[in-house]
Design a protein around this nucleic acid. Structure first.
Lengths: 339, 339
DNA sequence: TTCGCGTGATGAACCGATTCACAGGGGACG
DNA sequence: CGTCCCCTGTGAATCGGTTCATCACGCGAA
C-alpha cells in the first residue's frame, strides 16, 4: 500500500505550469474548450489528469457568482414523510444538475436559523423549508436579500414566499365522506393538539364534511386529543373511545402510527375491524397495506410535494406561486373488509 | 408588504465603509472581537445589522482553507435504514458544529461519482459513503488527495479507508441460535442473491450457527432466493416454502418487509404463527412490534452506525479505523407467542 | 511589401474574505 | 521630557479561480 502523504491539492496554476500555458488557458479548457486549439487542449488535459486536478469550487463561486446548490430544512430526516419529500426535491434538482444540502431542524427554531445562516453563507440559490414556527419574518428577510424561499407543507400566508402544501382539510373530508357513505353515523377522531396546523385543519375538514352530509358535527363526532402522535398514543386514545357510552362505529386517526395503535387496542379488546369498528389512517405509510388488516388511509403526494417545491425554486422567472396538492383516499379492508 | 427589490448582497467592505473603519477591523470584529475596542466594535456591529451583512462563505473558505462541512452518500434517502444512519451522522456533526451534505446514489456509480466530485469541489472535510460498487479505487484516490473517507455499512477491505459496519453474520447467527434453542430443526431462509454482500454474509451466519449446533446446514436449511426484497417477494417465497414436502417449522427473512409478506402468506394459508411456523425478520423497522403478530427481528444499530462514522470522520488524528457493530435480536411473539 | 483580420494564447484585474507587518497614539516609567 | 511598549487600527498581500482587453502570429488580399 502506497498511500502518498496527503499532498496539497493542485491548483489551476500548477496545471498551467505543467502544461506550459497560462492559467487563463486552463480555465478556457475547463469552460470553453472550443476556444482552445486541440494541441494545447490535449496538453492541458494531460496535466489535469496527471495532477488529479479538481477545481476549487469556492474560488469559482467567488468570482463567477453562480452556484448550483439548494438547501432544504425539514423537521426530521428520519420521518418517512419528510424523506419522501426530500427524495422528490433531490430528483428535481438532479434533473437540473443541482445539488441538495439537507438538514433537520427538529422543530427547534434556533437549529433552523443556524442552518439557514449556513446555507446563506455558502451562497445557495434558495432554500426549501418546513418552518419550525409560525413566525416567518426571518424567511421574508432572506427573501428580501435575494434568496429564493419555498415553504414546504405549509400554505404561505404571504405573497412574497412561494409555498407547496397538501390540502389537509380535503384529506380529512374524504375520509369522512367515505365513512359516512358506508353508513357510519357516529365517528371518533384521534387527533393531536390544534396548535399543530395539520391537526387543526384535519379537524376542520371532518367537521365540514359532516355538515355537508347534513349531520351535526357536535353530535356525530367525538374528538379525542392524544398526547403523542404514535402507536402508544393511538392505543390509549382508542381505549377511551371504547369506553364511551354511545360508542362510535368508526375512527379516523391523525396518522398511520396512531392507527396502528388503534388496531392493536381493538384486537386486545376483541372488537372486529371493520364490522365492530372501522379505522382510517393518514399518510399511507409503506406498511399500511401490509398489516393483518390492511389499513384505509389518506395518501399524500409526498414525492410530488418535494418535486414541485424544487421546481418552484428553480423557476427561471422566480415567480411567487402557491401550490396545493389534493390528497387521495386509499380504501382497504380496515373500512370495507368482512372482519 | 414592502419587499425591496433584491439588492446586491452586502460585502465586508460595504460594512467597513459604513462604519468608517478598514475591512481588516470588520474581520477582526467577526473573528477576534477582543482585539477591537468596544466603541468601534459597536459601530461595526451596528453597520452589520443595518446592512444585514452575511459573510461570504466562499471567500472565507478560499482564504482560510477550512470548512466545516462533510458529505454523505447513501443508496437511497427514502429508505428508513439509511435515514436513520443519516440522522446519526447529522447528530454527531451537529455536536461539532459541522453541517451535512446528503445525497442518494441510487446504487448508480455515475451518480456516486458525480456527488463525490461535487463534494470535493466544495472542499468538504470528508465523505461518508455507502459504496455503490465493489470497486473502491476512486475512494482510495480521494483519500490520497487528502479527504477523509469513511465507508458505511461495508467493512473496509483496505487499511487506508476507515469503515463502520454491522456484523451481518452475527445477526443471522443470533436469529438461528434463537430458533434452534426453541427446538426448531428445519429452517427456511428467504434470501436475496448472494451478489449482495449482506445477503451472502447472512447466509454464512446461518450456516455456521447451524454447524455450531451440530446440525448439517445442507440438511437443516432450505435457502429460498427471492427476486425482490419486499413484501411481495416474501409472500411468493413463503408459498414456495409451504409447498416443500419436508416443510420447515421456522423461517428467517432477509428483511422485515419480506417477513411482512411471509406473515401475509401464512395468514392466507391458515398457518398459525408461531406454532405452525415461526418467523424472524431483519432490520427491526418501526412497525415490527406493531403488527398483529409482533415480529421477532434483528435490530441494527443504525443511528450509532452513522454517529460513529461521523465520529471517525471528525477524528483529530485522522486515524484509519474499522468499527463493527453487533446487531441485537429483538424477540417478540412471531417466534415465542402462543398463536 | 504592406495591410487587415482571425485565431489562439496571455496576463492582469477582480470576487470577498483573512492575516500580518506595520503605523500612530497614549500611558508608564525613568 | 524622552523611551519604550501596549493597544488599536490600517492596508496590502493572498487564496484560486473567471473574464476580458490585448497581443503575437500567420495568411491572404491588395
Amino acid at each position: 500500500m502506497t498511500t502518498t502523504a496527503p499532498r496539497r491539492r493542485a491548483s489551476i496554476s500548477d496545471v498551467a505550469r505543467l502544461a506550459r500555458v497560462s492559467v487563463g488557458t486552463v480555465s478556457n479548457v475547463l469552460n470553453r474548450p472550443d476556444r482552445v486549439s486541440p494541441a494545447t487542449r490535449e496538453r492541458v488535459v494531460a496535466a489535469i489528469d496527471e495532477l488529479e486536478f479538481v477545481p476549487n469550487g469556492s474560488a469559482r463561486q467567488l468570482r463567477a457568482g453562480t452556484i448550483t446548490t439548494a438547501g432544504a430544512i425539514v423537521l426530521d430526516v428520519a420521518n418517512p414523510f419528510f424523506t419522501d419529500v426530500a427524495r422528490g426535491i433531490e430528483d428535481r434538482l438532479d434533473e437540473a444538475g443541482y445539488t441538495l444540502m439537507l438538514a433537520s431542524s427538529d422543530e427547534e427554531p434556533e437549529r433552523e436559523a443556524r442552518y439557514l445562516r449556513l446555507f446563506e453563507e455558502h451562497g445557495v440559490q434558495g432554500v426549501m423549508v418546513v418552518p419550525a414556527t409560525d413566525e416567518l419574518d426571518h424567511l421574508e428577510s432572506l427573501r428580501a436579500r435575494g434568496l429564493r424561499v419555498v415553504l414546504l407543507d405549509r400554505p404561505s400566508p404571504s405573497d412574497t414566499l412561494s409555498s407547496v402544501a397538501v390540502d389537509d382539510r380535503a384529506g380529512a373530508a374524504a375520509a369522512t365522506q367515505h365513512l359516512v357513505g358506508l353508513g357510519h353515523e357516529r365517528l371518533a377522531f384521534l387527533n393531536g393538539p390544534h396548535s399543530i396546523r395539520q391537526c387543526a385543519d384535519r379537524s376542520d375538514g371532518i367537521r365540514s364534511a359532516l355538515a355537508a352530509a347534513d349531520m351535526d358535527p357536535d353530535e356525530a363526532l367525538v374528538e379525542v386529543t392524544i398526547r403523542s402522535l404514535n402507536a402508544d398514543g393511538g392505543q390509549a386514545g382508542t381505549q377511551r373511545v371504547l369506553a364511551l357510552e354511545d360508542r362510535p362505529t368508526a375512527m379516523v386517526c391523525v396518522n398511520d402510527l396512531t392507527a396502528l395503535g388503534a388496531l392493536r387496542s381493538l384486537r386486545i379488546a376483541g372488537v372486529p375491524v371493520p364490522s365492530g369498528m372501522a379505522v382510517v389512517g393518514y399518510d399511507d405509510v409503506a406498511f399500511a397495506g401490509e398489516l393483518a388488516t390492511p389499513l384505509t388511509s389518506v395518501r399524500q403526494p409526498t414525492h410530488q410535494l418535494g418535486y414541485r417545491a424544487a421546481d418552484l425554486l428553480l423557476d427561471a422567472d422566480d415567480t411567487v406561486a402557491h401550490v396545493t396538492f389534493q390528497p387521495e383516499l386509499v380504501v382497504r379492508e380496515s373500512t370495507t373488509g368482512v372482519g
